[in-house]
């Protein structure tokens, strides 16, 4: 055949059998994928249901404890009040963890949407610092906010960006020993990103993270210290959710850190972006 055409031959019985086998394997693989998707959806629904069902009794426990603390049902002494306050604090910590599981389950089930508005990033920094005021004072930390006054307004999902900042600052405050420093810095950058971006840094002088854990900490359920006796508890979902929220805005999030040298978490939010 010198004319370049492809030689055609009749299908043999072996060819038929091969095609039949491949079709059967394909059908099996498709069933398997469908089955795995169903199980994943079931897991997500279970997480969502259990988180919702845990929240209701916890809400009641906290409210009843506050009623006792404030002496509405009778006088309480100092030690009783202290004990009740521990119930309230513990309950609120549990609620935060449940909220994180719910957020994760929500994001896994269906595509997350951005509720966009125009806002000043400095306002979020103010709110986040204010929310953590008492913890900063209790641990005698220095919290420094370095946000230039002329930073323009940005467009994005205010709740989600605030959630990211709250998570990063919460981690920084938790893992920095008393007397240490924590800071939030924001600036505009151009170059590597598709457009001008807001670059945010949350840094601390805490214990730091070994370089081989830098990717791991953004993975779901991952914790650097996975032992049951670990000193810091949490769902292991905070940074996974933070990464999801940042990427939803078309930005990225990363960490620069080493053991004993503190941590610097960065994230970017493009000012003008195309759909992520």
């Amino acid at each position: 055949m010198g004319d370049g055409s492809i030689p055609v031959r009749d299908m043999t019985r072996e060819d038929d059998e091969r095609i039949w086998r491949m079709e059967a394997e394909l059908a099996h693989a498709q069933r398997l994928v469908g089955d795995l998707r169903d199980r994943d959806a079931l897991k997500t629904q279970f997480l969502s249901n259990i988180a919702h069902d845990l929240r209701t009794p916890l809400t009641a426990i906290i409210t009843h404890a506050e009623i006792l603390r404030d002496g509405i049902l009778g006088k309480v002494n100092g030690r009783q009040r202290e004990s009740i306050n521990t119930i309230i604090t513990g309950g609120r910590q549990l609620l935060d963890m449940i909220a994180e599981i719910l957020l994760y389950a929500k994001g896994s089930g269906e595509p997350l949407m951005l509720t966009e508005s125009e806002f000043f990033f400095a306002d979020i920094v103010d709110q986040v610092c204010q929310l953590n005021e008492s913890l900063v004072a209790k641990k005698e930390l220095i919290l420094d906010r370095r946000v230039p006054p002329n930073l323009p307004s940005i467009s994005g999902d205010k709740d989600k960006i605030m959630h990211v900042l709250l998570n990063l600052l919460g981690n920084a405050l938790e893992f920095t020993p008393p007397g240490g420093s924590v800071w939030i810095e924001a600036q505009l950058v151009t170059g590597h990103e598709p457009s001008t971006s807001l670059l945010v840094e949350v840094g601390d002088t805490g214990r730091g993270i070994a370089p081989d854990h830098h990717e791991l900490i953004f993975r779901e359920f991952a914790q650097v210290d996975a032992s049951t006796s670990r000193a810091h508890h949490g769902t292991g979902l905070g940074l996974t959710i933070a990464r999801r929220f940042v990427e939803l805005h078309g930005g990225r999030i990363w960490v620069e850190s080493d053991l004993g040298k503190g941590s610097r978490f960065f994230f970017t939010i493009p000012l003008r972006r195309t759909e992520a």
Partner: peptide
């Protein structure tokens, strides 16, 4: 409500509600 997000607040405002309280609402 336990849903602390802008979409829920906007839905309640559109319906004419006078306030949205996030559970558990501190009693004070």
């Amino acid at each position: 409500t336990g849903q602390d997000d802008a979409a829920t607040r906007a839905r309640c405002a559109d319906a004419g509600c006078d306030g949205v309280l996030i559970k558990p609402v501190p009693i004070n």
